[in-house]
Amino acid sequence: MNAPVTLLALLIEAMFGYPDWVARRIGHPASWMGRLIALLDRGLNREAEDPALRRRAGVFAVLILVFVVGVAALMVERSLLLLPLGIVAVAILASTLLAQKSLYAHVARVAFALESGDLQAAREAVSHIVGRETAQLDEAGVARAAIESLAENFSDGVVAPSFWMVLGGLPVAAVYKAINTADSMIGHRTARYRDFGWAAAKLDDLVNLPASRLAALTIVGASTFTPGASAANAWEAVGRDASQHASPNAGYPEAAMAGALGLSLGGPRRYDDLHVDGAWMGDGRRDAAASDIRAALALYACADAILVGIVALIAILIAIA
């Protein structure tokens, strides 16, 4: 059942996304998980305690999060499957854990702002999809940030939930989403979260490891079918640069995207008051522009289609086995 549900979820999300009117009325599953994470943060993260105790509290918080989300998703999945066309209902719910359509829209908004000559609007648009400081970015910096976010979020927001959904259905995909949300909220190297967020950050690294490699492979494969992209350069960049990234996972899709498009991505960036001297992914141009964002979106769309094709093939093979 897992592969057909994943296939349906991918198709539903690609066509409809997560409607704004639904988000306004009931929020989003990630926001529900975020409320639980914030509650655990307020209740367990005591800054007066020593680092070892705060790290244990962070481990306990992640265990509670995983248990609550996993059990809730399992109960919902089993209840829905008792209904007529229950598999469709599960797929609709599972589609909320994916971000194909919204990711494309957010990145395209950055390209449109740059094409309109409105750098300030482009900075504002890209600030919604990256964690770094964007106020001082020039046009090339904004374009690179958008493309980097597209590559990384293809892995985190599309490939990873699909991967875990195929393996374990809605409950496992929901647990993945909870871990990923926890990492984005408390997995920072700040004074407040260096110890309490340690477990969330490490677990997120672990659960994203297979998907980041698969995302890079799909981008390399998509480069074969995308005009102007180079599969050979993408493969070379992954082998040369991906392991140099500060993240054990983000470098793989970023390097593949950079190599495919003849760009250099990554490099130094600023997060609030923290300067990160990041490695460069790819050895191409650094002066990216709106046209490069459009090329990245075309490559992303092709890579996403390959992912959908892989899931469809798995579903067919399981059905005839």
Rank of each mutant, 00 (worst) to 15 (best):
D118N: 14
G117R: 03
I310G: 08
Q136D: 13
R240I: 02
M33V: 02
E254K: 06
G262S: 13
G284S: 00
E152I: 00
A145L: 08
A38L: 01
R144M: 14
A237W: 09
L63M: 08
L10I: 05
V166N: 01
D287H: 04
L97M: 04
A73S: 15
R55G: 00
A145F: 12
L297S: 11
M185F: 02
A30T: 15
L63F: 00
S184T: 09
A143T: 12
A38H: 01
A301T: 05
Q100W: 13
P84H: 00
A30Q: 07
D304A: 09
V66W: 10
V110L: 06
H106Q: 14
L81T: 07
V308N: 03
V158M: 04
A321P: 02
W235M: 07
I186D: 04
I186V: 15
D20T: 12
V88K: 04
E77Y: 11
S102N: 10
D304V: 06
V276N: 07
M75I: 11
A200G: 06
A312Y: 09
L150E: 11
A48P: 01
D195K: 13
A303P: 14
D156L: 00
K202T: 06
T134H: 07
L36A: 01
G169V: 06
V110R: 14
H28P: 02
W164M: 10
G86N: 08
T190I: 12
G157W: 11
S116C: 08
V88C: 01
G141C: 14
A125S: 15
I64S: 02
L80F: 12
I310A: 11
R24I: 04
S212F: 00
V311W: 11
M15D: 06
V276C: 03
I87L: 08
A61E: 02
P268D: 02
V71S: 01
W235A: 05
S223N: 03
P19M: 03
D20C: 03
L307N: 12
M165I: 08
E152C: 01
A73N: 02
R56L: 07
A113N: 07
Q244E: 15
I310E: 02
E133V: 03
A61F: 06
G43A: 15
A94L: 04
L39K: 01
R194N: 10
L98S: 13
S247N: 03
G309F: 11
A312R: 05
S102L: 10
L119H: 04
N208S: 05
A298K: 15
P248N: 03
A99F: 13
R270C: 02
W32K: 04
A229K: 01
G251F: 00
G251T: 00
R189K: 09
S247W: 00
A48G: 08
A290G: 00
L167M: 04
V69A: 07
A3W: 07
L82C: 08
G70H: 09
